[in-house]
Amino acid sequence: MFIYTNMKETRPKLDPNLDGPNLKRRTSMLNLWWKILVVHIFVFSLATNFHVTSALPMPTNNSSTELIETLIKAIGKAAEFFKDSYKDINVDGLFGLQVGEGQLKESARRLTTTRWLNTSESWRNQLQKIITKMSDVLNLTLDNNLAKDNAYTEEFLRLLKQPFHFERQAQQIGISYNSPPHHIDQNLVYDENFGDNCLARVLGSYIENNRTLPKCTVTKDCLTYMMAPLTSGYYLTHQLLYFIFIQKIGCEGTGLLSQFSERPTIRDLERDFCRRIYQEAQLLTKQKNMDAADQDLFTEQTLLCAPLGFLDFIRTDWMKLVLSMQDPSGCFTDKTTLNIKESARSTSTMRKLMREKFMKGGCLSHKSGLGYGVLTIYLNSLIQDRETNGY
């Protein structure tokens, strides 16, 4: 789910119900890696309790005010675009919009309780207008997707019918610029079908033998797959997404997840995922020209890690980078890969609705949803920073 790639699958699809020698050998190897990974995460989580690198400086009061106003303007422009294009927003894009709605509501609440006298009322009024507009957009978009593909939309309906709020715990990941990159296996490519089945089991929408399994169903195969080491890119972000869903649905401490009641906890796993994701994001932003596919991955990385409270992702230069990606129309486009439209339509490894979808003017549904969500995350973080520091 929420994946955009035109990479070809290099290995056979997995079936969660498959039981055979190949899967057993695969599971055995992953189990070994899993044990090694758990030890690594535990040691790292202990280390980060005692040593945390200093965060990149947040903007000053004046520059923060200017950046907040720029973000509100950009978010409002995107909202206007989505109002006119809701029929073309797929489930991918809808998730990003629900993340954005959750962030905007948190921002508006903070502005209501703060004692700022000058700009806060104006900001609050602007946000309330955007929230109201986007509430209508979200309802229309959800109804439209239910009408187009009821079965698939229903599978993720629990997450799509209301604003998405993260369990935020502010902290730094604790890596320096000179930290060596994590090791990866380039042959590991995310299997969307298998991954979606694992996500659906957690959400309580997976149907097996004509019976809908209860929420928080976590199988050994899924847990092993979602904890595989040496992953990167979209595989890595979807591993994180799996555990975010587990927390969101309230599955912690149940079944196989009871092993995470003590260190390493699920929060430790999330920190380790985001540590690796941050290193990848750094490499992406060091490119002289970040192409559209890397922009999509970068915004997905930020969308998942920043609202969890990992302050390393809240960087002024990254905020300006995402703002520069936005089209004057308010959406996010692909201006660098000319043949992606055909690839998105024909690549067999992408699911029907979870591929990127072109909207009017060359805008992209998935990327626009991600970009919108990230802008709201940045805004909420800046407002919270001002609230915390009292300026």
Results as ranks from 00 to 15, higher is better:
228 A>E: 14
39 V>R: 12
319 M>K: 02
154 E>H: 04
257 L>T: 04
255 G>R: 09
279 Q>K: 14
2 F>W: 15
99 V>C: 15
266 I>T: 12
208 E>V: 09
329 S>D: 10
289 N>W: 10
305 C>V: 01
11 R>A: 13
111 L>F: 14
273 F>T: 02
303 L>E: 05
184 I>S: 01
352 K>V: 15
38 V>F: 03
13 K>V: 04
303 L>H: 02
369 G>T: 07
121 E>Q: 09
236 L>G: 03
2 F>P: 11
214 P>N: 07
123 W>H: 09
362 G>I: 09
84 D>E: 13
344 A>D: 12
360 K>F: 02
116 W>C: 14
280 E>S: 13
344 A>G: 02
10 T>C: 07
136 D>S: 12
208 E>I: 10
169 Q>L: 13
14 L>W: 13
376 T>E: 12
74 A>W: 03
309 G>Y: 07
51 H>P: 00
183 H>C: 00
178 N>Y: 06
155 E>P: 00
80 E>L: 08
29 M>V: 03
350 M>E: 08
205 S>R: 09
104 L>Y: 03
26 R>C: 00
305 C>N: 01
111 L>D: 13
295 Q>D: 04
300 E>D: 06
46 L>K: 08
87 K>C: 02
294 D>A: 09
88 D>W: 01
317 D>T: 14
165 H>Q: 11
162 Q>Y: 05
241 L>G: 01
224 T>A: 13
288 K>R: 12
72 I>R: 06
354 M>L: 13
27 T>C: 02
5 T>Y: 08
290 M>R: 04
341 K>F: 15
281 A>S: 15
302 T>N: 08
234 Y>D: 05
49 N>S: 06
311 L>G: 06
143 D>T: 01
54 S>C: 01
287 Q>K: 13
206 Y>Q: 10
232 S>M: 05
68 I>C: 05
163 P>L: 07
216 C>L: 06
133 K>N: 05
71 L>A: 11
223 L>V: 11
26 R>P: 00
130 I>S: 00
210 N>F: 11
287 Q>C: 04
265 T>Y: 12
295 Q>E: 12
313 F>I: 01
350 M>L: 10
14 L>D: 07
352 K>W: 15
258 S>C: 04
135 S>Y: 03
155 E>R: 14
76 G>Y: 07
138 L>E: 10
166 F>L: 12
118 N>V: 12
276 R>V: 07
166 F>M: 13
357 K>I: 03
158 R>D: 13
152 Y>Q: 09
213 L>R: 09
4 Y>A: 15
261 S>W: 03
64 S>D: 07
183 H>S: 01
14 L>I: 10
141 T>N: 03
17 N>L: 14
365 S>H: 08
261 S>Q: 13
50 F>T: 03
340 I>H: 07
218 V>R: 00
151 A>N: 06
128 Q>L: 15
196 D>C: 13
358 F>Q: 10
229 P>C: 09
137 V>Y: 04
256 L>G: 05
4 Y>H: 14
